[in-house]
Amino acid sequence: MRKILVTLKRVVDYNVRVRVKPDGSGMAVEGLKMSVNPFDEIALEEALRMRERGEAGEILAVTIGGDECQQQLRTGLAMGADRALLVKCEGEVEPLAAAGILLEVIRREEPDIVIMGKQAIDDDCNQTGQMLATLWGRPQATFASELNLNGDTARVTREVDAGLEVLEVQLPALITTDLRLNEPRYIKLPDIMKARRKPLETLAADDLELAAPPALKALAYEPPAQREKGVVVEDVPALMGMLRERGFLN
């Protein structure tokens, strides 16, 4: 039976507006509500549906970070993952370093399919899945909106700028999710209770003895440039007048 690895990143909840610290040294995230990256929830939901259709067996949820990330793994277990793994590591982990760590996890776990969110809503990089697939030497199907398994291949519909593209990839493969792939389920209280008894392992990233890859240096954070508030006009003729003044519709 196919084994599925899903990654879950701990991020500031998507409903919370995050601001830059006044001294520009970072983002003011202390005390904010934290959640599973929404694209990663979609990844886990897709894995659960595969298992429910009898297309997959074990589902492993993995994250990288500090002890606080156990909270997001517990959420994943409550949604229905069978096992969870925290690779413990302090500080910022960039996509290339994360991909290196996840490759080690893949070597140990040998999944048939890895499903990840297309991007995390904090750094908005949209890189880790592609980098991991590359280091793994396996195909990728990014921005998936439909996923169908057939033997040792997957047919994936991808949301691209020009429309919908269909790829067929040989398994093992890496898939990244777009918003329309599915709508993740809500967690019920009994599931949270059950999740407490599911296995959550930890592994120290240092014990993997990986060489740190070259990394970007974050120099400064600043708020985005604001547009100035404009004017409200009374009616269509006033609107048309202003547009013509600015050189439009002439």
């Binding site: 983002m27 908005d124 970007l216 974050a218 708020p223 985005p224």
Partner: peptide, 15 residues
């Protein structure tokens, strides 16, 4: 580059 859905702009330096 923009981060947090454009709520902040980050200056980075490549190695």
């Amino acid at each position: 580059r923009p981060i947090y859905a454009g709520n902040a702009v980050l200056t980075v330096e490549a190695p």
